[in-house]
């Protein structure tokens, strides 16, 4: 009884994990590669959803709407980046400011707090309705293909001269500057790329659930961090290659939603969900620190924690 209902919920949880996995990759770019905790994502996720839904309702092709969401997300990232690098506002605060401002922007885009987009009326890229279908339109299949292309593109980008300079900026800004890298430019670029992906994820999620909501991004950063950390903890030894690391992050997001589904079915009150997420992420963030503090010298890891 319990297992059948859980198994029934698995495809939905996996689809949710895959879509949010894109957003987690965005968080990985800022948190792990740039070494910045960027809180813009809570806003830009909803901005992506809002942009895509309103464009689709206005008759724009859903795929084009996704691209627009990506671009608008980049714009949001650029604002955070400029606040940080040009106006000297600490990154975390710059992100919070943009996020807050985006709440109003998102309401403006949607004109009200919630806007539906029905799969009956529009040919959406993904929809929860087909999550158990064995067709090419199954969102699991669509998102999986999407992710393969995306991870491939990111693998390529971070291997280029520009991508390498971006990684160097996050790894050691001092060294990057000494090697002629414009660290401010690269920081902005990284934030743009990250928030573009987050907005893209929001655009897919809005289509999947058939509506954009002004609160859909609340706590997104925590979910993104959870996915990044679960992916790292589980696949640290296994996944050395950059593309595999990104894959690990996506799997981390899937595991997050599977576990969430499980505890919900075990009777957890949905009101307590965010508290549970926050506690879990806090514990996982603390583990590396506590390890280094209390087990220093037992096992030296060098600087291999990042990227």
């Amino acid at each position: 009884m319990f297992f059948t209902s859980f198994l029934n919920a698995v495809p939905g949880a996996v689809a949710q994990g895959l879509i949010w996995g894109i957003m987690a990759i965005g968080v990985y770019i800022t948190f792990r590669i740039l070494d910045i905790a960027d809180l813009t994502v809570d806003g830009s996720f909803a901005t992506g959803g809002a942009t895509a839904v309103m464009l689709i309702r206005a008759g724009v092709t859903p795929w084009l709407a996704l691209l627009c969401a990506f671009l608008v997300g980049m714009l949001a990232g650029m604002i955070t980046g400029l606040l940080h690098t040009r106006l000297g506002i600490p990154a975390i605060l710059a992100g919070i400011l943009t996020q807050l401002g985006l709440y109003s922007v998102n309401l403006r885009i949607m004109t009200k707090a919630n806007q539906p987009v029905s799969v009956d009326k529009y040919s959406l890229v993904v929809s929860a309705r087909y999550v158990r279908d064995v067709t090419i339109g199954n969102p699991l299949f669509v998102i999986a293909v999407f992710l393969i292309v995306l991870i491939g593109a990111l693998y390529w980008f971070f291997g280029t001269e520009r991508g390498a300079s971006l990684r160097a900026t996050g790894a050691n800004a001092h060294m990057a500057a000494a090697q002629g890298i414009n660290t401010r430019f690269d920081t902005v670029l990284g934030l743009m790329l990250s928030n573009g992906l987050v907005a893209l994820s929001g655009a897919l999620w809005a289509q999947y659930q058939g509506a954009a909501d002004v609160n859909m991004g609340r706590g997104a950063i925590v979910i993104g961090l959870a996915a990044v950390i679960i992916g790292e903890v589980l696949f640290d030894k296994l996944f050395r290659n950059f593309a595999l690391k990104l894959t690990g992050v996506v799997i981390g997001a899937v595991i997050y939603y599977l576990v969430l589904q499980l505890v919900l079915q075990l009777g957890l009150n949905t009101d307590d969900l965010k508290l549970l997420s926050a506690v879990i992420v806090a514990i996982f963030l603390a583990v590396p620190y506590l390890k280094s503090r209390y087990f220093a010298g037992v096992k030296k890891k060098g600087g291999a924690v990042h990227a």
Binding site: A168, A171, N172, M175, A178, G302, V305
Partner: peptide
């Protein structure tokens, strides 16, 4: 200070 620790020797 002079190197990126998380990157490979050849990448640096």
């Amino acid at each position: 200070m002079g190197t990126a620790p998380t990157m490979q020797i050849e990448e640096n």
